[in-house]
Write a protein that binds this DNA or RNA. Sequence first.
DNA 1: CAGTTTACGTCAGTCTTGTTGACATTCCAA
DNA 2: TTGGAATGTCAACAAGACTGACGTAAACTG
Lengths: 170, 170
Amino acid sequence: MADGRIAQVQTGESLLFLTDEQLRQGIETMFFAYRGFTADPDRILSDLSYGRAHHRAIHFINRAPGTTVNNLLTILGVTKQSLNRVLRALIADGLVESRVGTVDKRERHLYLTDSGHALESQLSDAQRARMRAAYREAGPEAVAGFRKVLEAMMDPDMHRCYSRLRDSAG
Amino acid sequence: MADGRIAQVQTGESLLFLTDEQLRQGIETMFFAYRGFTADPDRILSDLSYGRAHHRAIHFINRAPGTTVNNLLTILGVTKQSLNRVLRALIADGLVESRVGTVDKRERHLYLTDSGHALESQLSDAQRARMRAAYREAGPEAVAGFRKVLEAMMDPDMHRCYSRLRDSAG
DNA sequence: CAGTTTACGTCAGTCTTGTTGACATTCCAA
DNA sequence: TTGGAATGTCAACAAGACTGACGTAAACTG
């Protein structure tokens, strides 16, 4: 329907990177890369009979220690019932600790235990190893572009939510 | 465990983009971007009571018309039973046609019907629109870097498989 | 203070999408 | 020609998402 080549004619610039074919290749590469991106932690998780959902929870609890269930819900974009199933397992297995809030006793603040931190390290070391190899192979300019495109692809709401998270961690 | 700053000291180059913190930000951005990446088609699909799996099948059948079930299996990386359920629905709904192979009658060759092409266009138009906006915002150099990093992140096997696909389409 | 809202947990049920296992058909090679 | 390998189908099950309903405790509000 809309074709990049039309835009090229309109602006007179070289916008060949916006052709439908270029975009389709970007879409497919994104699909394959995301699989690679999760492949290593997924292998570790399946040995523990955990899944992606558990990794996501562990990642963001480590990222923002003491975060509430509601915060986590917003970031992960799932229902509380779905998250609760995962958290229940992680708490039962002693990887996550849930503390009643002191200022607002309705809230539960989530923390990784020592075992939780151990698993988090194992998972993110595996994921970072692949990421690091990709970054090193592509070089710093490519990495800057990579980040720039990804951030432009995020939902604007998510972008705000994520910026807050990033700022709070410093 | 392994920290980018060590590499920096070793090589003397500026490898600050390889620090654990930079990598973690890349990991999180990838997570959020992938959600944005699939959000638009997912909305369309849920109205039709289809899901990601259906989109993937439709995408690659459109990409490589006449492909066999086994080819599709390799590309998608799921079991044949899982793919079969999805294909059965698409065939029943008249979006995909399955033709018995002429040279090897065990094989089924898959094609999109006219309705199948219509849905494929609708889905990929939506996905491309967001992709195009992100590309345009980031600019051509960023897009080149984006692609470079993603390709380095893919599984090597997948990379070969994908190259074949890309060549076959010309 | 009474009523409402918020935060969280849970039970029950459904749907998608992945998995194994068993099985039929077809092809190919010993 | 016969046994194994490849291709695809059917059945049953599990993980992880969803909705809806309900309960409890705490906080807020008129």
